[in-house]
C-alpha cells in the first residue's frame, strides 16, 4: 500500500456528507458577479436561483438598431467553460448575422471559443453585432446582400422590421424598446 494509506482509519469523519459546488457553477457565479456591462445591456433571470439559464437584453443607443430591445437566451451546461454557452436570439429579427431561427454568427460562440473567455466577452461581442453588422459573413443572406448593395434600402428594412413590419414577405417581431 502506498504511504497515503498507512495512516489509521477514521470512521466517523466519513459520516459527514457535503454536497459540492461544481467548477462550472463557481465559474458562472464568478462570471456573472464580475460582469461589467454598459447601460445598454441587462440580464434577466426568470428564476434567480438558476444561474445557468437567463436572458440578455441589448438596447443599442447608437447605430442603425438604435431604439430596439433585442433579447438573447443563454443556456450554460455543466461542461462550461470547456464548452461555450448556447446563445440564441429569442425574437425574429432582420439582421445579417442572425437567422430567422435565432442562430447568431459570432465566432467566439463556436469556432473561436476558449475557456479563458467569459460571459462578459460574449455579451460585448453580441452588442458589437448591432453596432457593426457584418455583411461579409452573413446568416441572413438577403439582409447582408441589401446591406452591402443598397445601404439606404437596408436601413429602411431595419426600421420596418423593428416595428414588427414585414420585409420581402417575412414578418418580423416588433422589438421597439419601451
Amino acid at each position: 500500500m502506498i504511504k497515503i494509506w498507512s495512516m489509521k482509519k477514521n470512521e466517523d469523519a466519513a459520516a459527514k456528507k457535503k454536497p459540492k459546488t461544481s467548477a462550472a457553477q463557481i465559474r458562472v457565479q464568478k462570471d456573472l458577479t464580475e460582469l461589467d456591462l454598459p447601460a445598454t445591456m441587462k440580464t434577466h433571470f426568470s428564476d434567480p436561483a438558476d444561474l445557468l439559464n437567463f436572458s440578455l437584453t441589448i438596447t443599442p443607443d447608437e447605430g442603425m438598431y438604435r431604439g430596439g430591445a433585442f433579447v438573447f437566451s443563454f443556456a450554460i451546461n455543466a461542461n462550461y467553460p470547456h464548452e461555450p454557452p448556447k446563445v440564441k436570439c429569442t425574437q425574429k429579427i432582420y439582421h445579417p448575422n442572425v437567422d430567422l431561427e435565432g442562430n447568431v454568427c459570432l465566432n467566439i460562440l463556436r469556432e473561436d471559443w476558449k475557456p479563458v473567455l467569459n460571459l462578459n466577452s460574449i455579451m460585448v461581442g453580441l452588442q458589437y453585432l448591432f453596432l457593426e453588422p457584418n455583411a461579409d459573413d452573413p446568416l441572413n443572406k438577403e439582409a447582408a446582400m441589401e446591406m452591402s448593395k443598397n445601404r439606404d434600402v437596408f436601413l429602411q428594412h431595419v426600421k420596418q422590421s423593428m416595428r414588427g413590419g414585414s420585409v420581402k414577405g417575412i414578418q418580423y417581431d416588433s422589438v421597439i424598446a419601451r
Binding site: K20, T21, Q25, Q29, L51
Partner: peptide, 24 residues
C-alpha cells in the same frame, strides 16, 4: 473585495448583476 457567496445548492449573496443582488 466585493465577495459573492453561495452554498452548493443556493446563492447566499451575489454582488451583481442588479437583479440577483436584489434577490439575494
Amino acid at each position: 473585495k466585493k465577495p459573492s457567496l453561495s452554498t452548493p445548492t443556493k446563492q447566499i449573496y451575489l454582488q451583481a448583476p442588479p437583479q440577483l443582488e436584489e434577490a439575494t
